[in-house]
């Protein structure tokens, strides 16, 4: 076992009061100290993951099911590694191979997974609200690994952890999120997470890809990236889905690059040590230029991936504390 000594014992409420939720379905509604608690807990796993032996037996004997109804490589892999490093038995269910293709309803699938006595279920689904629908039907904790355009809470947590490590305090930073905000669950979870932690958040994108009523989200809205970048400490570029590039939402990838691509020149408009982030996978030459993405002085893209595993280990640990009978977690 690694050391149990974390900051939580000093600065956070005791036991489950630090995170009194059964599931992790989204960032919306979480209190700032609950988010900070998750980040604090993740730090020990960052250290572990850098050792040659990356294994603890904290979740020994527990079954974690990764039920992915939408294709994913990185997030699935990240959750699988996280579960395995914690000692859990991890099983992956891919939609392409599942009975969803045979017409089974989501509820029936949820009931089936529940009957297999999973101790935690990680779900990704293409439809907003689908993860909550399943969570209401199962007895174990559910982690949202992305549902439609709704939320992707572990992505926001890993982004926050990355920013914390590179920039220190999140509170007071100016963070610009740029791209297809309308369809982005990453953008939504990050807006909630960063504004809750006290950052000034700017949102930028073509008007056809900005959702309605953004003014109600405690963010500044821009359609001009140059203006949005001025004074930014962190620049978070979103992935533009290929199917939205050909005339439906924007005229072409090259026009998008001209207006919203993060180039070296544009990055100079931001603060001197601005951090560049991207949830991946990147469209190099569309929303971000390679020389920016690969510039280790600015780019935190690979660190984001590293933090992802640690954050997911922390989430699996915390959400299963009650069922594992950890003292104070009821």
């Amino acid at each position: 076992m690694t050391s149990q000594k974390t900051a939580s014992s000093q600065t956070f409420p005791a036991g489950s009061d630090a995170f009194p939720h059964r599931h992790l379905l989204g960032i919306a509604g979480l209190q700032p100290w609950e988010i900070l608690f998750l980040l604090e807990e993740a730090k020990q796993w960052v250290d572990l993951n850098r050792k040659s032996s990356k294994h603890v037996d904290r979740l020994d004997g527990l079954t974690v099911i990764n039920a992915f109804f939408e294709n994913s490589t990185r997030t699935l892999l990240s959750f699988e590694i996280a579960g395995k490093r914690m000692g859990a038995d991890v099983v992956n269910m891919h939609a392409a191979q599942s009975s969803i293709k045979k017409g089974e309803t989501l509820i029936d699938t949820a009931v089936t997974l529940n009957a297999m006595k999973a101790d935690a279920i990680v779900i990704r689904h293409g439809s907003s609200g689908a993860v909550q629908l399943i969570a209401d039907k199962v007895d174990c904790p559910v982690l949202n690994a992305g549902d439609g355009s709704h939320e992707h809470p572990t992505q926001a947590l890993l982004d926050a952890l990355t920013i914390q490590r590179r920039k220190g305090e999140i509170s007071g930073l100016t963070v610009t999120i740029c791209g297809d905000v309308m369809h982005s669950r990453v953008a939504r979870s990050n807006i909630y997470c960063l504004t809750t932690l006290g950052a000034k958040v700017r949102v930028c994108g073509p008007p056809s890809l900005l959702p309605a009523a953004l003014d109600r989200f405690n963010v500044e809205v821009f359609t001009n990236l140059d203006e949005a970048l001025k004074g930014s400490d962190v620049v978070m570029m979103l992935r533009l889905q290929n199917e939205r590039m050909n005339g439906d939402f924007i005229p072409s990838p090259r026009e998008y690059h001209y207006l919203y691509g993060l180039t070296r020149e544009r990055l100079m408009l931001a603060n001197k040590d601005a951090l560049v982030m991207h949830p991946g996978p990147m469209n190099r030459g569309v929303e971000i230029d390679s020389d920016v993405a690969d510039d280790l002085d600015h780019s935190a893209v690979t660190e984001q991936v590293e933090m992802g595993v640690a954050v997911r280990m922390a989430c699996l640990d915390i959400l299963t504390r009650k069922s594992r009978g950890v003292e104070g977690w009821s």
Partner: peptide, 15 residues
């Protein structure tokens, strides 16, 4: 309908 609620829920909405 386009609204804060629809955007929060990540539902496709229209004017």
């Amino acid at each position: 309908t386009n609204s804060e609620t629809a955007t929060r829920l990540g539902l496709s909405s229209a004017t």
